[in-house]
């Protein structure tokens, strides 16, 4: 299921946002070797400060497994700036009905390691959501900055780009290119048929809040206090080196609990 996060609701979902930035760090920093800035294990750039819209994919456990970011092409966006080499020095497209999609990624490591959702399902669900969210906003086309592997995935899922702008350009370990997709029912239906996905892919804010509300009854006992803040407080308030070392050791020992103890920041 896909959650749309933007300026109007991001304050409710900071924990998902942080997981998304961590996923991006793993994919774009480590795997693809792009020249991205990673801080505290999270990949963020200046475009994240411009209130873009994100589509964030969650698995049944409520873990972030995929994400993508949309920006308007009428204002600052990546092809006008950091990806301008793809355009060979040409000015970028600017249109009210064209969005730019960047940072599309799927947590292949997590999904390959277990039963349940497949990489292909997660990829298709996110693509369907991006096209539908854009279409609902009156957007007719998307220009998307992707790597050649993603380009092949698009073609294989009956979702081939109808065109490209600029040229394929080296970005790190992997080159990047800019592809065009129309946000039409025809394309969405082809993709849905390919993936066998016929349900509503979006999860609403209310549904997610309700799910979080019911979690304590079904889920294993969760720590009653926020361990992460507790450890940080202990480290900050340590009065000598011994106390500090003990607090750091505690943090280390509990690190895995931070991963499993996630909740929605209300």
């Amino acid at each position: 299921m896909i959650l749309v996060i933007d300026a109007s609701n991001k304050h409710k979902f900071t924990s998902y946002m942080n997981d998304m930035f961590r996923l991006r760090a793993r994919v774009f920093g480590e795997r693809m070797g792009w020249d991205v800035t990673i801080q505290d294990g999270m990949e963020r750039d200046k475009f994240d400060d411009l209130n873009p819209a994100y589509a964030v994919g969650l698995d049944d456990q409520g873990q972030v497994v995929s994400c993508v970011r949309a920006l308007q092409t009428t204002g600052p966006h990546m092809l006008a700036d950091v990806f301008s080499t793809i355009l060979n020095g040409e000015p970028p497209l600017r249109s009210p009905t064209l969005w730019e999609s960047t940072r599309f990624c799927v947590d292949t490591k997590r999904l390959r390691g277990k039963d349940g959702m497949t990489v292909s399902f997660a990829t298709c669900e996110l693509m369907i959501a991006s096209l539908e969210a854009a279409k609902n906003a009156g957007i007719t086309d998307i220009v998307t900055v992707i790597d050649p592997l993603m380009d092949r995935i698009l073609k294989r899922s009956d979702n081939a780009p109808y065109g490209y702008v600029g040229k394929q350009t080296d970005m790190g370990k992997v080159p990047a290119l800019a592809a065009l997709l129309d946000c039409t029912d025809e394309r969405i239906n082809r993709l849905r048929n390919f993936a066998g996905i016929h349900h509503d892919v979006f999860i609403s804010e209310d549904e997610i809040t309700a799910a979080a509300h019911f979690q304590p009854a079904n889920a294993p006992e969760k720590p009653r206090i926020d361990l992460h803040s507790y450890c940080n407080e202990q480290i900050a308030s340590a009065e000598n080196e011994t106390e500090k070392a003990a607090a750091l050791a505690l943090q280390q020992a509990l690190a895995h609990r931070f991963q499993s103890a996630r909740a929605i920041d209300a």
Partner: peptide
């Protein structure tokens, strides 16, 4: 509020 978003 509304004009901070990118979507309507």
């Amino acid at each position: 509020e509304a004009r901070r978003s990118i979507a309507p």
